[in-house]
Amino acid sequence: MTNKNIIEVENLVKKFGKFTANDQLSFNVKKGEILGFLGANGAGKTTAIKILCGISAPTSGKVSVAGFDAVKHPERIKQNIGYMSQKFSLYDDLTISENFRFFGGIYGLSRKQIRQRTGELLQRLDLYDYRNRILRSLPLGWKQKLAFSVAIMHDPQVVFLDEPTSGVDPITRRQFWELIYEASEEGKTIFVTTHYMDEAEYCDTVSMMVAGQIRAFGKPRELKEEYDVASINNLFIKLARN
């Protein structure tokens, strides 16, 4: 792992009228790092992700993702990130390969690249033989893994995962995290939000958001020592209560 910062956020503020959704956020994420972005519902996680993805403009502050400024070049950022949301994000009425072809297409991959990447990713999931199946008929766990593969299809530098494992069984969750580790080893930076605190323990770094502010930021082990708690779960409760 190099020490290059892929995400740099400095004094990010986002206000909706009088309400401050993001209050003076500052943090850096390195290449290949897995950042667990934690916080209760309404703490301002989604707002921050939207700004980092370039679909919402910050009120003030500096944000740079993959080397591009989020205010000046949001479209450059979009080409260099992958995104997967909690809502299942592929098309149910299309086949697996049609979904890959579509997302490859809108990210500007050539036909040859699409074929090659689709083959690679599907073989890794052992789903190559199912490529002409309509998605609707597949189990949710498969779909989540496919959605992740689609999100990294264009080889983005950063992958944003917004509660990717909500509603899947523990085994699939484990397999999903294996995919995340693989991507991180390839040098992709992973930015993941989750409500499963055991998952937070898998992350290189966790960030804890409360009421629009980042209250804790660091390696899980160090944070646990610092706050004298047994698990990230307890840390979450401790911080969210105060």
Partner: peptide, 9 residues
């Protein structure tokens, strides 16, 4: 899926 489209280029 609209979110995915908006996040895309």
């Amino acid at each position: 899926t609209m979110e995915n489209l908006l996040v895309s280029p």
